[in-house]
Each structure stands twice: as structure tokens, then as C-alpha cells.
Design a protein around this nucleic acid. Structure first.
Length: 209
DNA sequence: CCAAAGATCGTG
DNA sequence: ACGATCTTTGGG
């Protein structure tokens, strides 16, 4: 993919760190994300354009939700441009509003930092399911609908310090360092390499230009 | 049609 | 290290 487009997904992924996403009455400060580069990224669901990935080729800042391992849901922000099909997986965050509701949805994990740590857990804390697929994350909601939708606040002016590393669980392009997280944040998940990925160092990291 | 893989998670 | 659980995808 052209360098310009790679930079777009990465910039938008980093820009999501520190922002707040609200889902069905629970708000989370995003602390960990992964960029997926669409048609030219072998790890991206949009690497092959199918019915499932079609939404990734749609307007930016819509919600892409998929079922993971038959068990969990994972939430992504489509970032565009539409011909590329890029998106950002929301991996972890800190619950900053609706903590009681998040605890209920997550069945009371031992510690609150675990409420939205990991993409499946984050989606569950926010109450995100396939029903939310395609939600316009920037749409304004009437006050009466505060508890019903999913939305994203504006970018923060002061950005957190960011660290980067390889994406979790991918078997293709396993060394591309497109996972980004807030440095030192306790809600960031642990790195786990896919057992199906080739040995570390076998695949080249994404070139910066 | 069938089989396999999968952007996970909790437990052991 | 492993199993739960099910949808999507690709091959024959």
C-alpha cells in the first residue's frame, strides 16, 4: 500500500489513544489499539474483500464488529480511505463511567483494571454486539439516548506518551509493529504471539517509507 | 458440501 | 498448553 495510506491508519490509531468511547452507558478511555491496513495488509480482515469486510470499505468512523472464536465480540473503528479498507481494533481501556454496569457485564473480575483489558473484554464492558455493527461513532445523540448507542468523543488536545509493538494474535505480518498503547498504563493487555505465526524476525516490519 | 482457521480469554 | 464455541471463508 502507498506510504501515505499506511501513515493514515497509524496516525488515526494513535489518535484514538486517550479518547473516550461510550457504549450503552459505559465509558472507556482507550489505552491500547491496533492498526489494520486493509487490502494490502495480510493480517487485515479486509485483505480479501468479502461480505464481512465490506463495511471496512465504507465511510470512516463507523463501527466494525466481528465475532471472535465464536465467543467474543471485537470492536473496530473504520478509518478509511474507502478504497483501502483500513480499520483500528480497540484492544483495551480504562472504564471511567458506568463502572457498576461494566462490572455486571463482565461478571465481576477481580480488579477494575481488567474490566476492559483485551478486545473481547472491552467490547463486553461496553455492551457491544453485532447489533452495533455499522454505528456512526461521531453521530450526536439526544440526551434521552445516552444509554442506547455507541459513540466516540473528540480527540484530546494533549496526547499520551505512546509505545508500539507487534500486533497480538495475528499469524500473518506478525512482526509489523502496529499495536500502540499508552506507556505504563495498567489496563494495557499482555502481548501474546499467535502460535501459528512464523518465528519472530521472520517477517519484515512495515517500512516507514 | 465440508473442513479449517480464527485480530480471544480464562484456567491449569 | 488447552478448550470453549460458531461464523466466515476457501477448497473440492
Amino acid at each position: 500500500m502507498p506510504a501515505r495510506d499506511r501513515a493514515d491508519v497509524v496516525r488515526r490509531a494513535k489518535e484514538l489513544l486517550g479518547r473516550t468511547i461510550t457504549g450503552h452507558g459505559v465509558s472507556v478511555r482507550i489505552t491500547e489499539v491496533e492498526a489494520y491496513g486493509g487490502r494490502e495488509d495480510p493480517a487485515s480482515h479486509a485483505f480479501t474483500r468479502t461480505a464481512r469486510s465490506e463495511i471496512m470499505y465504507g465511510p470512516a468512523y463507523r463501527l466494525y464488529v466481528y465475532r471472535s472464536y465464536g465467543i467474543h465480540f471485537c470492536a473496530n473503528v473504520v478509518t478509511g480511505p474507502t478504497e483501502i479498507g483500513a480499520a483500528v481494533l480497540l484492544r483495551s481501556g480504562e472504564v471511567v463511567e458506568g463502572v457498576d454496569l461494566a462490572r455486571l457485564r463482565r461478571n465481576h473480575p477481580a480488579r477494575d483494571v481488567q474490566l476492559a483489558r483485551g478486545p473481547g473484554n472491552l467490547a463486553q464492558a461496553l455492551g457491544i454486539t453485532l447489533d452495533d455493527l455499522g454505528t456512526d461513532l461521531l453521530a450526536e445523540h439526544p440526551a434521552a439516548e445516552e444509554l442506547t448507542g455507541v459513540r466516540l468523543d473528540r480527540p484530546r488536545r494533549t496526547r499520551p506518551r505512546i509505545e508500539a509493538g507487534p500486533r497480538v494474535g495475528v499469524s500473518k505480518a506478525a512482526d509489523v509493529p502496529w499495536r500502540f498503547w499508552v506507556a505504563g498504563d495498567p489496563t494495557v493487555s499482555a502481548y501474546r504471539r499467535s502460535p501459528r505465526a512464523p518465528a519472530p524476525g521472520t517477517t519484515l516490519p512495515a517500512r516507514e517509507h
